[in-house]
Design a protein around this nucleic acid. Structure first.
Lengths: 232, 232
DNA sequence: CAGTTCAATGACAGTTGTGCGACAGTCCGG
DNA sequence: CCGGACTGTCGCACAACTGTCATTGAACTG
């Protein structure tokens, strides 16, 4: 969840298709249409994966890929090449340039999503990992289970997503607004205090007995998953 | 990420759009509608970046930019010019005048935000950095934590912002009025002495035992973060 | 050195933010 | 159609935070 992807593609319809399907997977998707624009973005922001069209206005895909590999900061950034069928012969060259995978257009959407996921899981395990662990707390995305000190903890769907989101960025403080956007959804109209209530419920479920609280309240700012949880 | 930005723009709708998006990024945004007003603000306060409309009532954008460059205090202040499409040809003149970047209206919001971010990161790394470090003192914006000599220090929201602001410009002296504007907010009517009290509280929290004081009082002027802190 | 100005400190009251319990509306499965 | 699980909102209590004031102390001035 919440990996950031950059699409470099000049065909708008394709951007829409890709964006729609990847956002449905919970990824954060940004798109640019030109190679040189992409270079700017990559210099300014950090992404977890890049989808690169072979043929591009501006800097060509293959050239861009080479430059991505050349810059130290992006040398290990996963790149997936998109090639038209006729260019398939070039795939060897593409992989030689340093792409981690290539997908031939037109592609089947589920296959496409699977390839992206697989590559993310390989390169950024903490983003795609199915199990998040901190101290004696364990969250399994696949089975939708949470365990604390070996015992199963029952959470509602909302509390589950809330904990998942918090655990993804241990230590980082999120405002109530950010939490509403990330956990509830982008265009919901909900009182910010509601977040408090759910954090409270999450805590109650998570800390039976006298177990320590993994969630930190930052007065005036928001909530965070305690980065030192389980280490001290 | 608590950079202070000044927008100089006469189109109110545009101000709203910009303000909304930049505040969502965590920036502190102030806006004025006239060039001469902007000059006043710039003389009284310190900003990290200025967004300047090309066409303005009062002092024109290009003229204002020139004056910003002429004053020593603002000579290196990053400036982004906003130009309408028709004026694109003028961009050379704009850049020659000393703008660091220009954006053509209408612009895409994500691109706009990216440009602002990029320029800030380039020009004021300490403003964009998520962790500020000086000697044995450490302020982490993401996790909202402050450490002194390895130990966590608890600060109230105000004290946190105050320290953050001071650390952003080590050595620079800020008057109480400037501190009130920057840390408390622009339209608050609060006794200037209150700043003293909070600096006092901050010091107490920051200097347990016999640790040296990172905050310097400048009699008759204000306060500064000690520029030599940790280096001597 | 005495007088004046400005800053530090401790106390106090007022304000704000958070935790918590209660309750009502909604959704879904049986 | 009913019951249980889940969710959003309220109101209250309490603790944390903040602004002001009075007093003390330090630094500058002539």
């Amino acid at each position: 969840m919440s990996a950031r992807l950059l699409i470099v593609e000049d065909e708008e319809a394709l951007i829409l298709l890709i964006r729609y399907n990847l956002e449905a997977e919970g990824y954060q998707v940004e798109a640019v249409e030109r190679g040189d624009e992409a270079e700017l973005r990559l210099a300014e922001e950090t992404y977890d994966l890049v989808l690169l069209d072979w043929m591009l206005p501006g800097t060509s895909g293959i050239e861009l890929c080479r430059r991505i590999r050349a810059r130290r900061e992006t040398a290990s950034l996963p790149v997936i090449m998109l090639t038209a069928r006729g260019e398939e012969a070039e795939r060897v060259r593409g992989l030689a340039t340093g792409a981690d995978d290539y997908i031939v257009k037109p592609f089947s959407v589920p296959e496409f999503v699977a390839r992206v996921k697989a590559l993310l899981r390989r390169s950024r395990p903490e983003v795609a990992a199915s199990v998040l662990i901190a101290g004696d707390l364990e969250l399994d995305r696949d089975s939708h289970r949470v365990r604390r000190a070996g015992r199963d903890v029952h959470l509602g769907p909302l509390e589950f997503r809330l904990l998942e989101f918090l655990m993804q960025a241990p230590g980082r403080v999120h405002t109530r607004e950010q939490l509403l956007n990330a956990v509830w959804g982008r265009d919901v109209y909900i009182d910010e205090r509601t977040v408090d209530v759910h954090v409270g419920r999450l805590r109650k479920a998570l800390n039976p007995g006298r177990l320590s609280d993994p969630i930190r309240t930052v007065r005036g700012a928001g909530y965070a998953f305690s980065e030192t949880f389980g280490t001290g």
